[in-house]
């Protein structure tokens, strides 16, 4: 497996921010999602977040909800997600799983960590687990050398940011808008100060999720963060071309190219 920190190290050596792309496993199909993620890798994503579709995704906006629900309706299983991880990780790009907690607990925390590591996965992003309620996951991740990516928010206190930075491995995910996932027209003025607060708490890389959907926004965020996370805009490419995967992949490729160019022209 490859820790996500290697992607940040490479990007830093090139004087730029890393581009992290998200898609849910199983949309439009398991194989289709693998193909889509490989396109994102080829076109310039430095790391991939694979969403594990869940029935009650409280942090997700309508775009990601729609794709995840379609994946569930299509019968995607946790075991399928492991297969997607294995296929994407084989490209040598750090590959994380982003998941709500219950599917992990149901699979068995230790078993999940072991299977994720065996598939070559880098670690987990856990939107509904904070380090102070995540002892079981922290122990399993440490045992298997997996990245533990926890989130911070503009509402986080300095104490909690310090705790989160200390407990995270790979990077810290700064969810820089108070709200659910989704593409936004304007970037938030909450993001810069949040990144600064995480940086002053530790030396773990900070990636920002803020609804970026084009190269100009990516460039703006890359100006102050170690990584730019893009989710809904990628999902939108596939949703907008439902039933026509090749067209969806073309859209993904050109969006990735635009974003990858954006993270390179910031500084």
């Amino acid at each position: 497996m490859t820790s996500t920190s290697t992607a940040f190290a490479t990007a830093r050596a090139e004087g730029r921010a890393a581009l992290i792309g998200y898609l849910p496993a199983g949309y439009p199909s398991v194989d289709g999602s693998i193909e889509a993620m490989k396109v994102m890798v080829e076109a310039g994503c430095d790391a991939i977040e694979i969403g594990l579709p869940y029935s009650d995704p409280v942090m997700d906006g309508p775009t990601i909800q729609a794709a995840a629900q379609a994946a569930l309706d299509g019968g995607v299983r946790t075991s399928d997600v492991m297969r997607v991880v294995a296929e994407v990780a084989a490209t040598d790009v750090p590959t994380l799983v982003m998941t709500y907690w219950n599917p992990v607990e149901r699979y068995g925390v230790e078993r999940f960590a072991a299977d994720l590591a065996a598939a070559g996965g880098a670690g987990l992003i856990t939107p509904d687990i904070t380090p102070d309620h995540g002892a079981e996951w922290i122990a399993a991740a440490d045992e298997h050398g997996l990245d533990k990516v926890f989130l911070v928010a503009p509402s986080s206190t300095d104490d909690r940011i310090a705790m989160t930075a200390h407990e995270s491995r790979g990077f810290v995910y700064a969810a820089a808008v108070m709200g659910v996932t989704g593409a936004r027209d304007a970037t938030s003025d909450l993001a810069g100060p949040l990144v600064d607060r995480v940086r002053s708490a530790g030396d773990v890389p900070v990636a920002v999720g803020i609804g970026v959907s084009n190269g100009d926004q990516a460039a703006e965020v890359a100006g102050f963060a170690d990584g730019v996370i893009v989710g809904s805009a990628f999902v939108r490419c596939l949703l907008d071309h439902e039933g026509d995967l090749p067209a969806g992949l073309d859209a993904l490729r050109s969006l990735t190219t635009d974003l990858a160019e954006g993270v390179r022209r910031a500084r």
């Binding site: 942090m59 509904d128 687990i129 904070t130 309620h133 989130l151 928010a153 509402s155 986080s156 108070m178």
Partner: peptide, 12 residues
């Protein structure tokens, strides 16, 4: 019980 929640809601 416990609190399995997004960090964004922890302060609240």
């Amino acid at each position: 019980g416990g609190r399995f929640m997004p960090e964004a809601l922890v302060a609240a």
